[in-house]
Amino acid sequence: MNPLSNEEQLHAYVDDALAPAERAQVEMRLRADPDAAHRVEAYRRLNLLLRAALDPLLEEPVPERLQHLPTLRARRTSWLRPAAFAASLLLAGAAGWFLRGAADSRPAFGDALAVQAAAAYRVYTPEVLHPVEVGAQQEEHLVSWLSKRLGAPLRAPYLGDAGYRLVGGRLLPAEERAAAQFMYEDVRGRRLTLYVAGSPEQARETSFRYAEQNGVSTFYWIEGGLGYALSGELAREELLKVAEAVYRDIAMRPQKPRSQ
């Protein structure tokens, strides 16, 4: 970091963010500079006022809906014990939880996403000669091309730890928009696809949902304005592990540029 300006030093002094030596330096300056000393006083006073104004909020009773977190428990079960996943989905569904706000467009978009992803999986994974449009050896080009076409920064998650390597990807139609498909395979040649499409503005973010069609399992979710669907001919628990790896990879390395 750049050295602090005089003014920044005063703030850092007030917020107790200075090393002892710098602290002593500022204190010396304050004795010689009444204007700076007044500012320091004013900043301190603001801190006190803000705390006095906002601390009472901590005493407010927590509303019912945040207190009991029943929803959180249902979700937690699903995450921590994959074996209980089906059961918890049922439970959560019964509680209206995964479908909270069933009137909004989320289920419709999510369901369509799962169907399209599974269809694209079935069409392209059996391909021997042309499974992808752009291969993994041109990963950077692939990702920037698809990002451009979807109008959103994408990434091809690294799934090496789950035993899958990137084969490549292609551009696909999704409703009126573009979608991307990344294909992966393991050492035995078993393939998975990650299908990504822009979500409608009003679609809410969701946690994992699961669908199975004709032997193709799909986990799908909506996050950060994009719908993701991971499809494969795998048991649910096995696919869930990979889905979590995808999720983690995307969540841990946000694409957005650091804002100033």
Binding site: E8, N47, R51, L54, K256, S259
Partner: peptide
């Protein structure tokens, strides 16, 4: 910073901005 009394570096991490941005 003023109310929660977070260190600058932690506030920078929460906001995902550089430390200098927190200070300015």
């Amino acid at each position: 910073v003023a109310v929660e009394e977070m260190p600058y570096a932690q506030a920078a991490a929460v906001l995902d901005v550089p430390l200098g941005t927190v200070m300015s």
